[in-house]
Design a binder for these strands. Structure first.
Lengths: 98, 98
DNA sequence: GATGATTACGGGAGCCGTAATTATG
DNA sequence: CATAATTACGGCTCCCGTAATCATC
């Protein structure tokens, strides 16, 4: 089983949070093509479909929903390690709104 | 601050556990050159020297010792995610010996 | 001279952005 | 026709293995 790079998890969290590949691509400042490739690569490596693509966006499958907290946990550890702010503003806004 | 790929952390843990780049390279089935590059890349990205190189091996600096448990924690989450056995046999043997 | 780490160097794989394509409303 | 995702393609960066080099015993 191959390694899963941090970049793929970051793409997954961004897309899962927004239910949109395009919005995730804008957030991570990459092209739609790159975002599509990253999600595809992650699905291939895990051997699991993570999103249901439909007309206006992409929603998490049950497998995708299961993965999301684990992916966030890894990114949280990683970001603490490199001294970066807590990963994915959109998700943070939802979790911390007051 | 750039991402730190899982592969770099894996190289670091293997080398730190064995106090030897060569042994770590054999364990991860890569060349000595690749191992040296990976450790250098990690040191560069963190801006910290992780090993003291000497004649028969490479020993962790205090900074390297601090990093080791964090690196193991990330790899543990990662490996659980992909359903891999608990990361770095040599370290596991030391931690779990009976 | 043997061992262990580093450096140099080409080759190949992988990733990206652009842009064309498909699909749906 | 507008929007969102995918695919195709070319270019470029990065990573690896080989092999030469440095350093220490």
């Amino acid at each position: 089983m191959p390694d899963i790079e941090t970049r793929l998890l970051r793409a997954f969290v961004a897309a899962g949070t927004r239910a949109s590949f395009g919005a995730a691509a804008r957030n991570l400042e990459c092209s739609p093509g790159a975002m599509s490739q990253r999600i595809r690569a992650l699905e291939a490596r895990l051997g699991v479909r993570l999103f249901d693509r439909d007309r206006n966006g992409a929603r998490l499958t049950p497998d995708g929903r299961d993965l999301l907290p684990d992916a966030r946990a890894i990114l949280a550890l990683h970001d603490r390690l490199v001294g970066r702010s807590p990963a994915d503003p959109a998700g943070a806004r939802k979790r911390n709104r007051q």
